[in-house]
Each structure stands twice: as C-alpha cells, then as structure tokens.
Nucleic acid binder design. Structure first.
Lengths: 340, 340
DNA sequence: TGGTCTATCGTTAGCGCTAACAGGAGCCAG
DNA sequence: CTGGCTCCTGTTAGCGCTAACGATAGACCA
C-alpha cells in the first residue's frame, strides 16, 4: 500500500501540487473557509485523500497560538469518580477536536500543583480542567493567577474558578429525606474530609434536610473517603449505638461501615440503615446491596468540557451546569426498628 | 510584578537581547550544549530567570519533529487497574519531560481504535502506550502498521507489540498453590473474558498449577470482569457445590460471588474458599476480607514508560519488564472443610 | 613566526502552517 | 466601454525555534 519510497508525511505543498492549486487554497479547504469554488474544493479534497494528508499540529499551533489541547489537572485519578470524570472530558474533547493532556498530582501541596500547572502550560494548553475538588488546591490556583481559562469540576461557583458540578447538596438531601421517610430520627453522617468541596456540601445538605424535619445534626464524624476510615468509624458507631441510620459520604466508606457492623453483629438494614454516595458499579453487590446516590461523572466531565469550549471559542455557554444526582434505593435501608 | 505593558510571552530573541548574546546561544544553553562558556551561560540563565522565559513547544516540535508527547490509548479507564496504570505512566513521563495525551475508547471495535490512534498521531505523539489488553485490539494495532513506537501494557511479548507486564501466570499459580496448600482439591476458576490477554494467562496459570498437583481443571466458568457476572456465576456454583475453593480472576467478580454465596447461606471461608486478583483497596473490607493477588499497576505503568523512553531515545532498555505479583492472604481462604 | 586546531559565538535557512495582502476574472450599472 | 464591485486564487511574510555552517580569537606545535 504505502509508497515504498516512503519519504515523509505529505505537507500542504504536496497536496497543492497534486491538485494544481496553491498551498494556501488547500489551507482554505481544510479550514472550511468560504470563497473556494466547488470544483477546486473537490480537486483538493481528492488530493488530500489520495496522499493521506494530515495537518501538522505543531506548525498550525505555532502560527495560530492555539494548541487545541486541554490540560487536565487531577489527583486521585485511581478513584472511580475522578477517573470517570476524566473519561467524560476526554470524550467531549475528542468530539470537539481537542486533545487532552493530563497531569496527575499526589496530595495537594502547593508545589506539586504549580509544577503540574506549569507542565500543562509548557505544553501550551488552551485551557485547564481541574479535577481536584480540594479547597487548598483552589486557593493555590487562584494565587497562580493564570491567564488561560480554568474550569474546576465541581467548582464552588465562587470567583473565577468554577465549572459544572453535581448538585451535592441535593444528593445529600435525597439520601436523608429517604431515611426520614422511613421513620428514622437519629440520622448520623460520616463525611468526607471537610476541606473538600464535595465533602462539605454533603454535610450541608444533610444538615439542612435534618433541620427542616426538626431533627438533630449532632452525630457527625469525618472520614477520609477510604474504606479503611469507614471501617474504623463503623467500629466506633457500633459501640455508641446512637443512630438508627447513617448517611455515608461515599460508597467506599460505606463498605467499611458494613464490615465493621457485620463484625459487631449489627444487622443492616434491620438494626441500622445505611445510605452511600456515588453508586459505583460494585455497590449493587455489597452485602446488603447499598442504597446510594448516583452521580453521573461522565456527564459531569462532558459538561465541563462544553463549558471550556464555550470559553475558548467565546460562545455563550449552552448546557446546564448542574447535574442532578439520583437516589438509588437498594437493600441497605429499611424502616426504623421499633426498639432503640 | 509582571510588566504592565504585558505584551506576550518572551521568546529566545528577548532573552538574547537581555543577555547580549545571539538567540542561538540561548538555545544552546537551554539544550545543554557544550561549548558555551561559563560566564555567558550564567548571563543567559539570569536573563531567562528574569524574563520568566519558557520555551515554545510548538516551535520546537516543528523543527525537531518531536512533540515530547506520549499518547495513551486506553479502554476501561474507569476501572482500578487501567486508571492506576495510567497514573504510573503519567508520573514517569512527566519526570522524563514528556507530556501524556489520552484517547479513551469504548469497546474494542476496529473503527473506535483506529479513530483513537489517528487522534493521537494527529497530535504528533512520539510514541503510543496501549492499555487495552484485548486480543482484538492487538490485532487491529498490528494491522495499522504504525511507524512510531508502540508499547502494549501487559503485551504478550509476541511480535512487535509488547511491553512490561505483571506476571499473570505466576499470580494465578500463587493463588492456586495457596489453595492447594490448604488441602483443597477441587479448585474452580472464574475467569475473565478469554479474549483478554490477562484473562487467558490466569487460566493458564490455574491449569498449570493444578496439573502439577495432579488435580482436575474441569471447573472453569467465564465471566466478564464485572461484579454482576460474578454474582450470576456465584449463584450457579452455589447450586452445584462441586468445588471447595474458587480462584476468581479479579476482585470485583469475587465480590459478586461473595454476595451470591452469602444469599445461599454458603459461608466463606468455612464452606468454600475464595481468592481474587488485583487487590483493590476495597478488597480488604469485603466480608470476609479477600485473599487476593496484588499487582502493582503504577509500577507497571512506570516500567512501560521507561521502556518507551528507551525506544524513543534509542537507549538500551534498563529495567526489568516483568513485575512480580504478590499473594495477600486475608480471611476468605481456610483449610478444606472435612466433609464435602 | 606561521599554520593548524579548538572552543566559542554569530548568521542564515527553513520546519509547515496561516494571516494579510495582492491580483485577476467576471459581472453589473452608468 | 469604463469603473467598481464580488468572488476566487496566488504571493509574501512570519510564528519561534534548531541545525548547519561561518567567523573569530586564542592555544599550541613545529
């Protein structure tokens, strides 16, 4: 197939020669400029196809000062949520003709963040999407005062740094409302770290729903998102026995609670009800299957990318910025036990 | 700080003017060429620092025909293994001064793959790392006959397409050997899809270890990696009751089995032992905590990136290509029950 | 002293593309 | 028939960088 004298990639000039036009006309065809006659357009397109021409991105970037690259700054990429958000971003980006370059960071140290940001700007990223929903990170980014569009996934909407988000507060309220509707009155909460945007928002939602029902919001314990922290907290809660239901800020911690309760002989949902958050695929196979709040991370990523595109191309943002979460009722919740 | 008349990014020329040398000398300093006197080098570096100069990647790529970008082709990026492999790749890449651009695909259709590959080559990737350990994918890639280095994570080592891998067969044998050492003789296997490289390798390991012990390898069921498939298969196995131990090809399917067994009143590990594969962080909090085979995905990604770098820069590959897995014994395995 | 060699630095060309301008053909009104 | 317009196409310059070659000065040896 390939020409054995395989010199190198064809360039505009080669296409132009074959189509008997100037290289500029070929450029016009590629970029969909008007004012190209149908006839020559056809000849050019045929030549492009024949040579298998592909535009050189570096050359184009050099002159347009655009790389068509979106940098994604992410921590915890190994986790379900961030990984799937990245997936959504990538998909939307590719459809829109953008490349996605990633920079992962461990922890949220200022240096790690600025190094990663620099890495992305060195590549000439046209914009940056941040999947590090951690207060400290936002502050560092704010201070860096970048001169390119920055979208923060789940961003708080305050200041310049914002983006699409899942309505965390609503999700939390759905969970708590579900528990209240089952008759529970002492509803605890195992939160994520409180310096994480999402963690805090879920606490707020839990509080608000309780307040409206006139219930107490005393029972709050802070975890670190990991199953291990859920396990340790579960052991404490098992000692106290002060709640009949717990809203847990993610499914992994809920798994930890489940095991701690199992070991202490506390039955879920007979003795205590549990609601998680995220709806990872595995959660349907916990014992018992976990009632949880589903958030569509992929959709979230897509929305963020759409927003990014609107900013870069100076169009009006189209889609809604808030993704609605959804309660998925399974078997870890039941009516409040009579005694207790 | 910044000059209020903030024109644009400084370029070589600006640095050169400030340091009173030619732009070429600045280029030499940046690229660590020899034959630059210490004095001028110092002046140039000072000028670079003062202006905050950063080299323009597009311009450099245009002339060097290198983008310093590694494309990562991945499916199932939402899963624990691939996501963490990507993490390792990214980390090693950044340390080596490479950018990482991703293209995710759903499924393994030939068109999806070639579109993604084209997307990466359009960006001018210097090399491609493939995290799609699926036979069909490898075939498609082979047929595309790309003229850039391609590293396949977990690659079979056959033909051009290979890369670093975790020794899957060894991992499977560790798992089975552990079960045998506990006295089990009827050891089943729930495999991953058999057209996945890893899935097949684990079946082979299971077979080999059984054969050496003179045990039967009749009990093989194919899953699809998901917890759901594990659940369905678990229900079947619970009916049959033909094995005292099952080696499951990943932790998620093991979770499904666990739940199916739990529902049928089959106790793990008292009635049946279970070994998983992967050692996801959650597996320690299953009920019971899962004995499994740990593979270090991040290390795997790093090794692949090292290999890539060696290929691009024409050095001898340094590190070992095979990462050793490790058996993690927890509570889902126990000696063979006496009756049965 | 003169020639050669080496270390250091400058000059020139060009990577492949797009923006800006220039030019020519066709059309219409006066 | 001419001026001015529109539509299409070509020519030129330059994005910021590195490779290749040229030039200069000092070192070193015969």
């Amino acid at each position: 197939m390939a020409n054995s004298n395989d010199r190198r990639q064809p360039r505009l000039e080669d296409v132009a020669a074959l189509a008997k036009v100037s290289h500029q006309t070929v450029s016009r065809v590629i970029n969909n400029h008007p004012n190209v006659s149908t006839a020559t357009r056809g000849r050019v397109e045929a030549a492009i196809a024949e040579l298998g021409y592909r535009r050189n991105t570096a050359a184009r970037s050099l002159v347009t000062r655009r790389t068509q690259t979106i940098g994604v700054l992410a921590s915890e990429l190994g986790q379900y949520g961030p990984a799937n958000t990245l997936l959504g971003v990538q998909q939307a980006a590719r459809e829109a003709g953008y490349f996605v370059s990633i920079a992962a960071i461990k922890g949220a140290g200022a240096k790690a963040i600025s190094d990663a940001v620099r890495h992305l700007t060195d590549q000439g990223a046209d914009g940056m999407i941040v999947i590090v929903p951690h207060d400290g990170t936002l502050q560092v980014l704010e201070d860096l005062n970048l001169d390119l569009p920055v979208i923060v996934v789940g961003g708080a909407g305050e200041g310049r740094l914002s983006g699409a988000m899942v309505d965390q507060k609503l999700g939390a309220r759905l969970a708590v409302a579900h528990l209240i509707s089952l008759g529970h009155q002492r509803i605890g909460h195992v939160s994520g770290p409180l310096d994480w945007v999402d963690g805090k928002a879920r606490v707020d939602g839990w509080r608000e729903e309780l307040a409206e029902a006139g219930l107490s919001d005393e029972l709050l314990v802070e975890g670190d998102w990991s199953a291990g922290s859920g396990y340790r907290i579960g052991q404490q809660l098992a000692e106290q026995r002060s709640a009949t239901a717990v809203f847990v800020s993610n499914d992994q911690m809920a798994l930890g609670l489940l095991r701690a309760f199992g070991e202490k002989g506390i039955r879920v949902p007979e003795d205590i009800s549990l609601v998680g958050f995220d709806d990872q695929p595995e959660s349907a196979y916990f014992m018992p299957p976990l009632t949880t709040v589903r958030q569509d991370f992929e959709e979230l990523g897509k929305r963020c990318m759409d927003l990014m595109r609107a900013q870069i191309e100076d169009e009006a943002g189209s889609g809604a910025l808030v993704v609605k979460p959804e309660l998925v009722v399974r078997a870890s919740t039941a009516p409040r036990p009579l005694l207790s």
